[in-house]
Design a protein around this nucleic acid. Structure first.
Length: 937
DNA sequence: ACCCTGGAAAGATGC
DNA sequence: CCGCATCTTTCCAGG
């Protein structure tokens, strides 16, 4: 099939797929989302930053920053081509509607809050690109802006690559992975100074360099040459970092697949010295979703420059120019073979194409390698980058063109906005054995009920059909994003009733499914299978930090773009419950899907029904309370009712908590254990005080007033209000009002946020504690502010994903994360984790309502993730110093400012005798706090 | 013949 | 370094 040539595609025209309503198509072209995007990206950074790494902002933040920029690149490189339209230009940086731009731009001026002891990178970034005037998008400006940019240097701390992985967990969090930049950063030695401080030398420049050229390839080529002049292997081979494989070698190397993909040979540098690409039977995006530069994006679809590209570019300014190269997949087992035919179909002369491709991909790559080569600590595998990538036959679909104007796949979006709500009516089964490329399809994902998952868009009354996008997302503790090791696989056949169209967006396969009014905007997802990519393939990908081993859980992520009157499509997103994709896990590991009770008084004794899979009669249910450092402070095996045992359900008697005198809810975990190393994910459970901890009644008013303070509160208010009252009433019958996991999440969230109810026990106001917490941040969590200057520590990331009954309502409330991010971002421009102190003036908070399309970044949809995050947040707050104020409720804190007491900060297990001592003091503090709040409000 | 599945062998990796 | 337990990937066979 002939591929759309670069020249053929009109850069300024972003045709949407046929499935897209004309209105949407129209709007997409001219609507700038960039401010949002930027914000989202930034938010995400924060989220990630805090999630994996310990409180120390340094690593975590860096991590996120880098990752974002990198992955932002996905579609990025090409930033320029798209910009032709003036309307576009206005979109980027300059949308006055919100503070996004400013907020987003802030990263450039990030204060270096990172601890010096952490490895760091001196990054030269270009200011000015954020001018907010879209200079980015004006061709002329773009070109001119480069030299004009002011160089700024930011010192970023290097993320600890492995920190995110919980050694004890079944599955590693799926990574920042694709946020390849992380790895990039991590591979750099501290204080390493890039040789290329000039923007011109940075691959990042490429996007800025060849905007909409009539001769994309040439222009690109030219620019790349200019940018990479000295570093190009072609031009100066000596600079090539590749020690063992030259491009030529690579190209001429046999394509035969190694006997075993696992048998990797490394040279002294730890790089893989030899590598044979494997020809996969089926084309699949091997590139990390975050990886952005592919032949497709660079050359095949130069017009496909997306906002994310711009975001990436901007982010790059704050991080590392080298990151640009992350987008270039260097590993591709099957590339050569697959592409040969593909190339032949191209409209451009093959030789030209080839050259261009090679140049396009190699230059940045080499540049990258060159830089890396000089680094003392090179942890990267030197995998030759093949100029051709896996075939992407479907990528030429017009539909894919819409991606440029739509939010990147790893942006977090709400499932609900205004009257619209994207809801997963029928959740997929918790297990689905993914198939390898070497296998035949293993069929479509099914629903636990026997049918197939169903997604429905509520509130949409137009007659215009829409399109549902589906891709495979992560299901780990971190935020949702395309899964590096899994791709959606289109299922066809007589058994499939739903038509679908496969496309690739930013190297992630996306299934597009029509959403028709005649079907009540409901789609039965019987056409989506899951393809497993070899770990070795993905892990070898340059910049890929994700670990495939045991990273076998995914979620189905659905998106819908709703045309809006203002021309800006509203994008909603919903993610399914986690799906275990490995064969073994599906057969052996217990999996908890639901629990009848999420919280109960410390006295325990109540029966809780745990439903899931692979339960045995001798399955044990262990309750665990974890200390900040991940150690188990308390473990208790719950009694299970053997007689009531079923393979998919267990009846468990909630064990009494170790401390019956808690005055505020204490969150613990439990898991089902079928034997050694056969444990389910951690599930959340909250112990409630035996007696209702009603310290005072004002909080309600205060809290509500606080919620009305800022736009950001909206999501939170929904989240919190219910709980607040619940908490008061809870003791009567916690179980009755806390059934769904989500409810519990809300509760937890609120609990930690609504200081007034916090347990004195959990408040360690002592200086010693405070310091202790700071110096020993045990946990870092997504979206959570980390204590500035803290030392990063490896956090145990229990891969606890609570499978909540998916409730749209609930989902929609899960806005905590994004909001946190927003707030955080706004207050911490640099992306460095900056603790938001209660009494710190609040930064302007972008109004969610103003920009429903993207301002609600956090996907409410990933209920499980959110639940975890919230859970984690609570833990952090509970365990860490007061400085780690939960950002979840910024307004609340603002209102509460001057008083840190209400925030649970420690989980220290102290003698119960101390409880009362604390209680009195804390109560007093809380009263004062509340009084203060009242005055303020 | 092809798709879908379940099972399991063989190899890879981690403890 | 070895052995064992796990985990991943490929193969096989049957419906």
């Amino acid at each position: 099939m002939p591929r759309t040539s670069v020249a053929a595609a009109a850069p300024c025209s972003l045709p949407l797929g046929p499935l897209f309503p004309a209105s949407l198509r129209d709007t997409v072209e001219i609507q700038p989302f960039f401010p949002f995007i930027m914000k989202s990206a930034e938010e995400e950074n924060y989220n990630y930053a805090s999630s994996n790494l310990s409180a120390s902002l340094s690593l975590g933040v860096m991590n996120s920053s880098l990752s974002t920029s990198c992955h932002g690149i996905q579609s990025s490189n090409p930033i320029i081509s798209i910009i032709p339209s003036a309307s576009h230009s206005s979109g980027y940086g300059g949308n006055p509607e919100n503070e996004a731009s400013g907020y987003y731009l802030s990263p450039n001026i990030r204060p270096n809050g990172a601890p010096l002891e952490s490895p760091r990178i001196e990054i030269t970034s270009c200011l000015g690109i954020h001018s907010g005037n879209n200079q980015f998008f004006h061709e002329g400006d773009v070109e001119e802006s480069i030299p004009k940019r002011t160089l700024s240097t930011a010192t970023l701390n290097l993320p600890n690559v492995d920190t995110y992985r919980d050694p004890s967990c079944l599955s590693p969090a799926s990574s920042l992975s694709s946020r390849s930049c992380n790895s990039e950063a991590s591979s750099f030695e501290s204080n390493y100074s890039y040789p290329c401080t000039s923007p011109l030398n940075s691959p990042w420049q490429s996007p800025c360099v060849s905007p909409k050229t009539t001769e994309p390839d040439d222009g690109y080529h030219r620019n790349m040459v200019a940018c990479n002049l000295a570093n190009s292997p072609r031009h100066s081979p000596s600079t090539s970092p590749r020690t063992s494989i030259s491009e030529e070698n690579w190209l001429t190397a046999p394509n035969s697949r190694p006997t075993s993909p696992f048998k990797r040979k490394y040279n002294l540098n730890g790089r893989q010295t030899s590598y044979s690409p494997h020809h996969s039977p089926t084309p699949s995006p091997h590139n990390s979703p975050r990886v952005s530069i592919t032949e497709e994006t660079w050359l095949g679809n130069t017009h496909q420059y997306t906002n994310s590209a711009i975001v990436a570019a901007i982010n790059a300014l704050t991080t590392d120019p080298i990151d640009m190269n992350d987008g270039i997949p260097i590993k591709s087992r099957k590339t050569a073979i697959d592409h040969t035919p593909n190339m032949a179909l191209k409209t451009e002369p093959i030789c030209d194409e080839h050259d261009t491709l090679s140049l396009a991909t190699d230059l940045p790559s080499e540049d990258y390698y060159h830089i890396r080569k000089t680094m003392p600590c090179d942890q990267y595998l030197s995998v030759p980058q093949h100029p051709f990538h896996w075939a992407k036959p479907k990528n030429i679909s017009p539909t894919s063109y819409m991606s440029p104007s739509l939010p990147a796949l790893d942006w977090h979006l709400p499932s609900q906005s205004g009257p619209y709500e994207l809801r997963i009516e029928v959740q997929p089964k918790s297990h689905h054995r993914a198939h390898y490329e070497t296998e035949g399809s293993r069929g479509a994902v099914k629903a636990s009920t026997g049918g197939h998952p169903i997604v429905q868009l509520h509130g949409y009354l137009e007659s215009e059909p829409l399109t549902i996008q589906l891709f495979i997302g992560t299901a780990d503790d971190r935020l949702l994003r395309p899964h590096a090791f899994y791709q959606v696989h289109r299922i066809t056949g007589k058994t499939v009733s739903t038509t679908s169209h496969e496309t690739i967006i930013s190297n992630t396969k996306v299934l597009e499914i029509p959403l028709l009014p005649e079907n009540n905007m409901k789609a039965i997802i019987d056409c989506a299978g899951i393809l497993k990519l070899r770990n070795s393939d993905i892990e070898l990908r340059k910049g890929e930090t994700d670990i495939g081993r045991k990273n076998t859980r995914v979620r189905l992520v659905f998106r819908v773009h709703i045309p809006q009157a203002n021309g800006r499509p509203l994008t909603l997103q919903a993610a399914s419950n986690p799906i275990e994709c490995s064969q073994r896990s599906a057969q052996e590991l217990p999996l908890v899907e639901k629990q009848s009770i999420d919280s109960f008084p410390v006295t325990g004794g109540k029966k809780m029904i745990v439903t899931g899979h692979n339960f045995h009669q001798d399955s044990k249910v262990i309750f665990v309370e974890k200390a900040p450092d991940g150690h188990h402070v308390w473990e208790m095996e719950a009694k299970t009712d053997k007689e009531m045992f079923k393979p998919n359900s267990l009846v468990v008697e909630i064990p009494p908590f170790r401390n019956h005198r808690i005055s505020s809810p204490v969150e613990v975990n439990f898991y089902v254990c079928n034997g050694k190393r056969k444990r389910s994910q951690y599930q959340q459970f909250t112990y409630l005080p035996a007696n209702v901890p009603i310290i005072k009644t004002e909080p309600t008013d205060d809290y509500e007033s606080a919620q009305t303070c800022g736009p950001m509160n909206q999501g939170l208010s929904q989240l919190s209000k219910p709980y607040y009252s619940q908490q008061i009433l809870m003791p009567s019958d916690p179980g009755s009002c806390l059934v769904s996991g989500f409810t519990s999440c809300q509760q937890r969230n609120t609990v930690m946020s609504s200081s007034p109810n916090s347990s004195p026990k959990l408040h360690d106001l002592s200086t010693s504690s405070y310091n202790k917490c700071i110096s020993n941040p045990g946990h870092s969590h997504p979206g959570l502010p980390q204590p500035t200057g803290g030392v990063p520590t490896v956090q145990e990331v229990p891969r606890s994903i609570v499978v909540h009954p998916s409730s749209p309502e609930q989902s929609s409330h899960i806005m905590l994360q994004p909001q946190v991010s927003l707030h955080q971002s706004s207050s911490c421009p640099l992306g460095f984790q900056q603790t938001v102190y209660p009494n710190s003036p609040s930064s302007p908070v972008p109004s969610i309502t103003q920009e429903p399309s993207y301002l609600q970044p956090c996907s409410p949809t990933h209920s499980s993730v959110m639940g975890q995050q919230q859970h984690q947040q609570q833990k952090v707050q509970r365990n860490e110093s007061p400085t780690t104020q939960p950002l979840s409720l910024p307004e609340l804190h603002e209102d509460n400012n001057h008083n840190l007491a209400p925030i649970p900060v420690t989980i220290k297990s102290e003698p119960e005798e101390l409880d009362q001592l604390y209680l009195d003091d804390v109560n007093e503090i809380i009263r004062n706090d509340l009084s203060t709040n009242n005055v303020h409000t």
